[in-house]
């Protein structure tokens, strides 16, 4: 179950909307922060805190691909492979990350350090290839740059 502080946070969100269902998305983010991903337990907690049926919570959560639907590593790499990034070699970068950090698209490295998610365009076509690590933005990627960047995430 959520602790008191988290419950208070959710109460505050709830107070902003006339319908408690409207507080679902922000509450799911909180649950994801607390549990690392949207586990069954996390969704159950949201359901209880909001008094919204569990199935409805899961239905809503499963619609959005940017929630974490399975456990992830300590850092999440979101690499774009859409057209601009692809032309500038994003696919090679996927392979590079795969060998260097032992993490395949959609997976997590054995040391639980990185998870790799392949993204649709993240709006950085002008400075492609680009990726997000957690919430930090990185552009003009090359194998070398990736190594420099990722070494900072332990």
């Amino acid at each position: 179950m959520f602790n008191e502080t988290v419950l208070k946070e959710i109460e505050e969100i709830k107070a902003k909307y006339p319908e408690r269902r409207s507080a679902l998305l922000p509450s799911l983010y909180i649950a994801q922060r607390e549990f690392g991903w949207l586990s069954h337990e996390a969704m159950e907690c949201v359901s209880k805190a909001l008094n919204v049926p569990e199935a409805m919570v899961r239905g809503t959560a499963s619609f959005y691909s940017m929630y974490k639907h399975k456990p992830v590593g300590r850092h999440v790499i979101q690499l774009c492979t859409n057209i601009s990034c692809m032309i500038l070699g994003a696919e090679k970068l996927v392979d590079f990350i795969g060998t260097r950090y032992e993490v395949q698209p959609g997976g997590t490295s054995p040391d639980n350090r990185f998870s790799l998610v392949i993204m649709e365009c993240i709006g950085a076509c002008g400075t492609a290839p680009a990726m997000l690590v957690n919430t930090d933005f990185h552009e003009n990627l090359s194998e070398k740059r990736i190594e420099e960047i990722l070494d900072k995430y332990k």
Partner: peptide, 24 residues
């Protein structure tokens, strides 16, 4: 949801992968 009021199932996922599922 609207008649039985049990809200035990939901449409899960999106697009091509949408399907009905109970919570568990």
């Amino acid at each position: 949801n609207d008649v039985q009021g049990a809200s035990a199932i939901s449409m899960m996922g999106r697009g091509n992968h949408t399907r009905m599922e109970p919570f568990s």
